[in-house]
């Protein structure tokens, strides 16, 4: 039973005794789970064990769920070279595979917009459904958009239950167990970066990525919101996000904003950089730049 369904049920019966009597132990534990940030180390370990067993059984292969904490003195930043991107969408599908998104209904964290060179960055004339034989298409450029990992995130402020927050390394995360599916955060996000599981997610076992993080790519349920986490399961291990590695043209750059001499710092110091919808003061840590 999920928290929201139970809350409804509880409204009718309002009986804790009944709850403990008729709900199996596993589900009872899941329901009584606190939000991730107020859990003790032991509690986290217990939850992780339960989840690993659950996923392993469901997908028929061993799953790991990490709760790895932020690397000290790290603030992640991302930069995308607009002059290089050719709109091939390899990042979109690489992301889906790495992050265990539902294939049907389809959930994508990255939307690649096709824009006209003459009009510049103009969302009124953006097309995310472009279907070309070849890219880049004459006279057009491409702008992949995903979560901008804002320093001043409207989504976090909008959430009525505190199920989404900014981690010390700057990643805005969602606790899928705590999310009540109200979608207020989605309405608050000016980048359309949050996705909702309207239907029961379908993730074929053979395609499931068994290396997961609690706040990242572990399998989700129907009725929760999800989004890009910079591949928290990878970057907290020091690896690049998946989209950086699958980009054939090398348009995607990632690193620690606090580290002098990192790729990301080089870009901020040497290239022409833009952020999307600057006037909203969301302060993205996702930068677009012109490499040429």
């Amino acid at each position: 039973m999920k928290r929201r369904t139970f809350l409804k049920a509880a409204g009718i019966t309002s009986s804790a005794a009944l709850f403990s009597a008729c709900v199996p132990k596993e589900a009872r534990e899941a329901f009584l789970q606190k939000d991730f940030r107020s859990l003790s180390k032991d509690e986290v370990a217990g939850i992780i064990k339960r989840l690993e067993a659950q996923y392993t059984q469901k997908f028929g292969k061993p799953f790991s769920v990490s709760a790895k904490e932020p690397i000290p003195e790290t603030s992640f930043g991302y930069a995308l070279d607009i002059s290089r991107c050719i709109g091939c969408r390899k990042c979109v599908y690489g992301c889906v595979k790495e992050n265990n998104q539902s294939r049907d209904p389809q959930i994508h964290y990255i939307q690649v917009l096709e824009l006209e060179k003459e009009k510049g960055i103009d969302f009124m004339h953006a097309d995310m459904y472009y279907d070309r034989d070849e890219v880049p298409h004459e006279g057009h450029f491409y702008l992949p958009v995903a979560c901008q990992q804002c320093k001043n995130p409207p989504c976090v402020k909008a959430c009525p239950v505190g199920a989404t927050w900014t981690e010390p390394d700057g990643i805005v995360v969602v606790d899928y167990d705590w999310c009540i599916g109200c979608r207020t955060c989605m309405a608050a996000c000016p980048y359309d970066a949050r996705q909702f599981n309207w239907g029961k997610p379908h993730l074929p076992s053979e395609e499931a990525n068994p290396t997961t993080h609690f706040l990242g790519n572990r399998p989700r349920d129907k009725g929760v919101v999800e989004k890009c986490t910079f591949c928290i399961q990878r970057v907290r291990e020091g690896r690049y996000p998946e989209c950086v590695e699958v980009c054939p043209v090398g348009a995607r750059k990632f690193g620690n904003l606090l580290e002098e001499g990192s790729e990301i710092r080089y870009i901020l110091e040497n290239k022409r950089v833009v952020i999307l919808k600057e006037e909203l003061n969301t302060q993205p840590k996702f930068y677009y730049f012109y490499g040429t």
Binding site: Y240, V244, P248, V249, G250, N256, E259, E263
Partner: peptide, 23 residues
């Protein structure tokens, strides 16, 4: 500087790089 072309591996450690001729 890691800006033109592509790096893979670790953002805080060992990286792999493609030559110009790979692309």
């Amino acid at each position: 500087a890691g800006i033109h072309g592509r790096r893979t591996g670790k953002w805080n450690g060992r990286k792999e790089y493609l030559l110009c001729a790979h692309c």
